[in-house]
Amino acid sequence: MCLAIPARIVELTGEDNARVDLGGVRKEISLALVEGAAVGDYVIVHVGYALSLLDAEEAERTLALFAEAGIDVAAAAEEGAAP
């Protein structure tokens, strides 16, 4: 089970792409699978795609839970890419 790390959209970079912040790591991802995503929204990212939009409060709760469990969000996000 791939852990769902909430990523915050920091910039829309055109053509359905965006830059997100994942625990301090910046990544370019595709927004092709979600509709209406805007800067400041949280999304769940998998292999370069935003899979779903998250409620900000829920996202922050999940991030707090990972922090509480000692899970390094940035490292977990790096592991999220399947070959």
């Binding site: 089970m1 769902a4 769940i44 829920e58």
Partner: peptide, 29 residues
């Protein structure tokens, strides 16, 4: 080496555990 994450739900009230279970995992929430 997949970590067993279910223990994160221990000690939670049942409704909170249900919400967390669906938010913890990306592909099968």
């Amino acid at each position: 080496g997949r970590p067993l994450a279910a223990h994160l739900l221990n000690g939670r009230r049942v409704d909170e555990a249900v919400t967390l279970a669906s938010n913890l995992f990306s592909l099968c929430g």
